[in-house]
Computed example of a mutant assay.
Amino acid sequence: MPAPTRTTNEEILAVAVRLVEEGGPDALTMKAVAARVGVQPPSLYKRVQGREHLLGMVAERAASDVAAVLDEAQAAGEDPLDGVIAMARSLREFAHGHPRLFGLLFAALPDAARPSRDVLARASAAVLTAGGRLAGPERALDAARTITAWAYGFLTMELAGAFQLGGEPGEAFEFGAHAIAHSLEQPMDEPGKAR
């Protein structure tokens, strides 16, 4: 009779996500995962290739979660401006709720830990759609990159406590989200040259 299965891939991934959320990527070790799921570390290698592979699974889960959040936010509004603002707010909520997973999305990861292009494409789809609706299909990628870079920069600084000059970061975030969304409404023939 075969030995009973003591853990599952989903349980391993859930524990890996919790470890990253609690202590960042450095907290994710095969030994720590094995201890939490109740197996010996070598047993994990029957289910995952190694730590980098497991970190990649966590990064893919984070990207999939962000994709779902952004899809829901974009779908809530008919107006493209409202869609970008809603996505920015949803991403901020995700970043505050899961700061280490948010950071992992933009971290320089080893090749084995990088999310697949399919997962990254799904995570980018809502922003590309919104960018295209505002700036036109030919500038969708430029618009999506602008939205993403602003949101990532703002949220990274906010989470690090870098805003020390007073004022409320939430109000500044709202100002920025509106400013970015409205700036993308202006179609451009060439970079830096408005029509």
Rank of each mutant, 00 (worst) to 15 (best):
P2Q: 11
T8K: 00
N9T: 12
N9S: 14
E11C: 10
I12V: 14
V17E: 11
V17N: 08
R18N: 13
R18G: 03
L28F: 05
T29K: 01
V33H: 04
V39G: 06
Q40P: 01
P41W: 04
S43F: 06
L44H: 07
L44R: 01
K46W: 13
K46Q: 15
R47A: 05
E52W: 14
H53M: 04
L54W: 05
L55Y: 04
L55M: 05
L55A: 04
L55H: 03
M57F: 10
V58Y: 04
E60T: 13
V66Q: 09
A67D: 05
A67Q: 06
A67S: 08
A68K: 06
A68D: 12
E72C: 04
E72P: 09
E72D: 12
Q74L: 07
Q74Y: 04
Q74M: 11
L81P: 02
D82N: 01
G83T: 11
A86F: 11
M87I: 11
S90T: 01
L91Y: 05
A95R: 03
L101G: 03
F102D: 01
G103Y: 03
A107G: 01
P110F: 13
D111R: 15
V119C: 02
V119D: 00
L120I: 11
L120C: 13
R122F: 02
R122D: 08
A123E: 12
S124I: 02
A126P: 02
V127E: 04
V127I: 12
T129V: 10
G132M: 06
L134N: 02
G136T: 06
P137L: 13
L141F: 09
A144T: 06
A144C: 00
R145N: 15
I147H: 10
W150S: 03
W150E: 07
G153C: 09
F154D: 12
F154L: 07
L155A: 12
M157F: 08
E158L: 03
E158I: 03
L159M: 00
G161N: 00
F163L: 07
F163T: 00
Q164Y: 01
G166Y: 14
G166V: 09
G167W: 10
E168N: 15
P169F: 07
E171A: 03
E171T: 11
A172T: 11
F175I: 13
F175M: 14
F175G: 10
G176F: 00
I180V: 15
I180L: 08
H182K: 13
S183L: 12
L184F: 04
Q186W: 15
D189T: 13
E190D: 13
K193F: 13
A194C: 05
A194H: 01
